[in-house]
Structure formats: structure tokens, C-alpha cells
Amino acid sequence: MDEMVVDAKDLRKIYKMGEMEVHALRGLDIQIRRGEVLSIMGPSGSGKSTLMNMLGCLDRPTSGEYHLDGESVAEMNDDQLADIRNRKVGFVFQSFNLLPRATAISNVELPLRYANMGGRERRERAIAALESVGLGDRVHHTPAELSGGQQQRVAIARALVNTPAIIMADEPTGNLDSTSGEEIMQLLLNLNQENRTTLIIVTHDPEVAELTNRVVMIRDGVVVEDRS
């Protein structure tokens, strides 16, 4: 039961900007068990988003070791990273990041398309995912026809549609009013309860952090506090 979904050791990330080097992560260790709900907090510029990008396989660390769900990520090439993102990671962004011209169902189908899933199965699973976030009646709406909270629900449906090992949410409530924010948080927590999906939430909001059973504080690219 103590299976590690995320196992990262001595993660370092150096951004080179011309002559200048920005050390965004300076030897960060983190381990997350399956089914955990974890929030990452820290001041602006401390490296939270950078860490999310590493854990979500959007980017490679400059050095360090990282195993996601048992697979070593650090040496993977771009296509392998794309593949592991597709199978194991679901993203929820602060600004929703839906395709503006596509309907809710098309947006949710997107990860399944890149998984080469057939049209019928894709549609069924996308509808199921939209129903699980309470949008069964908004399947053919485009983002412009949905409220912010609803858009974020579509994004959550998209994140969970290919049953990933972890869902990464970078300030998922940042663009929402407090009521919709709470609803979104509740939805994420429910999903965790039902599917034991590991949930990593980056947030500035202490109330959001309150809802998670583990809080990791980051400063200057290292973990300074880790309480459960």
C-alpha cells in the first residue's frame, strides 16, 4: 500500500538566460504515495511551477533522478515524455487551457486521441468523464458558453479521462471566485476518494491547503517543510 507514485531525488533545474543562470530547483527530494492528496505552497518564484513541470514530465530536470509510477523519466526523449504524459499525468491549469473552438466533449477527448483510441470508445469515455464532473448536460457547449467554474470542470474531466496515475493542478482555483473554487476543490477531493487518483495541487491559498492531508512548503528550490 505504500507504493510510491512520485519518487524524485536531488532534482535540480537551472534556467540559462544568456550569461545568467537561474537556479529554480536546488536539489529537491520528494516522494508521494499512491492516493495521496498533497498541496505545494511557497512564495512566488520559489519553484513551485518548475517542480510541477518536472513531476508532470513537461520538462526534464537539469540533473537528478525521477521515477513516475515506476518509470525513470530523467533520460527519456521528447516522444517518450509525450507518451508518459499521455498515459500517467492529467493537468489542470489555472487558466483552464481549453481549446476555444472545440466543444466540451472534443476537449475531453483530446488526450484519448493522442492515445490512438477509437472514436466510439473515446466518446463514451469522454461523456462518462463529463458526467462525473457534473457536466453531463453541457457536452456540446464550447468554452465561451460555459462559466469559469464549468470550464475548469471540463479541464478536470479532461485530466481524468485517461485514468492517470497523478493529476497535477497548478493553482486550479486561482481564476475562480471562492464559491466555484470550493466546488472545484470538492470535486477534486471526491475524485481522489473514488478513484484513489494521486492529487498534487499548487496553491497560494491556505484554505485550499487546509483541505489536503499533506502540505509541502518550498523556498528557493528546496523543500523547507513537509507536514501531514
Binding site: 508532470g56 513537461l58 521528447d78 516522444d79 509525450a82 507518451d83 504524459r85 499521455n86 498515459r87 493537468f91 487551457n97 481549446l99 483530446l110 488526450p111 493522442y114 492515445a115 479532461r158
Partner: peptide
């Protein structure tokens, strides 16, 4: 650009 980033995050490969 953002759409492309999003597609890549969702698992699109270079050739997609």
C-alpha cells in the same frame, strides 16, 4: 502557441 503547448501536455508528439 498555447494550444500547441496544451496539446503537447496532453500527449501530442512532435509528429502529431
Amino acid at each position: 502557441t498555447r494550444e500547441i503547448g496544451l496539446r503537447k501536455a496532453m500527449g501530442a508528439r512532435k509528429r502529431d
